[in-house]
Amino acid sequence: MSALMELRKVWGHRPLISVGVGLLIQDERGRVLLQRRGDDGLWGTPGGALEPGEDFLTGARRELLEETGLVCPDLSLLPVAEGLISGPESWHRYPNGDEIYLLGMRAHGTLSAAALDGARPDDSGETLELAWFALDALPELSANINRAKMSLLRARVGLPPLPLEPTPPAPPVGNFLRELRRFVGSRPLFAPGANVLVTDAENRLLLLRHGDTGLWTLPGGSLEPGESFEQTAARELREETGLMANRLEPLEMFAGPDYRFTSPNGDVVDYVSVLYRAHGVGGVLTLQAGEVLGAAWFGVDELPADDELSGELIRANLRHWKEGQSTQP
């Protein structure tokens, strides 16, 4: 049984966050591979939820094999600006009443049309049928998340986007992970969220001292149901620092086994985190009481040692920033 189904035992039909990957497979004519789903009989792309500790590309290859029996040699994740899945349009209610916010990444690959002759989906019942469809002759699609994926491909060939179905208002921002912990204890949970690079006029990077660990971290935090990654980045930046950005540029997605973190209280999370760069930052630096013990600005050669940073995710975020500085003219 999947980790998500285990959560359903204690959470019921209420909205959950599912971290997963959607696959956009096209043939030599530009047609897209769709599966007719076993739950609602409608069409969508192959894909599904990650398992704890799994990265997106590994999950994409696994889901493609399970749902189609196919292997796509050139399968790769889309650039983060195109590949992100999140936001209110990612809400879906399954026929059994389960509500979910799907988020994660999209992967793209190509196969010959003839490859479908060798398709052998597994016996789970998720895939009733597989077929190629032209982007201007799509069947009835299951859920907004599939409409959004098709609109991405349609835009590439000059076709208009598909209309989205209405979605319910997002739940009030609270502390989704903390509430979930009441039911599941310290077991590994996905922690989707965002961190933000904020620099000053001297190109020094803003770091915060974490209230629980005393270690240095970036402004950022966990995504709440119904939020996009960008909305999370903006909210956490404002809450933790009092600052606001005119624009948040997505730089990179960080996910996989390297980014598992154990809190001082024993809670285990697998981070699924988008790193943003803040542009046009304004406001007065005002630290969030309790959450943040202090703040400082660091030049690229002045960053704290690795053991002073709050885990591998933050270390990887800072390496990304440093590498970006080295490539600038």
Rank of each mutant, 00 (worst) to 15 (best):
L4H: 09
W11Y: 07
R14Q: 13
R14D: 14
V19H: 07
V21E: 14
R29C: 06
R29E: 15
G30V: 03
L34F: 05
D40K: 03
G41Q: 05
G44S: 09
G48L: 08
D55R: 00
T58N: 08
R61H: 14
R61S: 09
V71D: 13
C72G: 04
L75S: 09
A81S: 13
L84Y: 01
L84P: 00
S86T: 12
S86M: 07
S90H: 01
H92R: 11
Y94M: 04
G97S: 12
L102T: 10
L103C: 14
G104N: 14
H108S: 15
A113D: 15
A114C: 13
D122Y: 08
D123E: 15
L128H: 08
E129W: 09
D136I: 09
L138S: 08
S142I: 03
R147I: 04
R147P: 04
M150H: 10
L152W: 02
R154A: 00
R156H: 07
G158F: 02
P160M: 01
P160T: 05
P163Q: 05
P163Y: 05
P166H: 06
P168L: 05
P168M: 06
P171Q: 07
P171N: 10
L180H: 06
R182K: 15
P188W: 10
A201G: 07
L207S: 00
L208V: 05
P219G: 01
G221M: 04
S222R: 09
L223G: 09
R235K: 12
L237A: 13
E239P: 10
E240N: 08
M244I: 12
P250T: 13
E252D: 10
F254E: 08
A255K: 05
D270V: 06
Y271W: 15
S273T: 15
A278M: 10
Q288A: 14
V300K: 01
D301C: 02
E302Q: 09
E302P: 00
L303Q: 07
S310H: 10
G311Q: 08
A316N: 03
L318H: 00
W321F: 14
K322D: 04
T327G: 00
P329H: 03
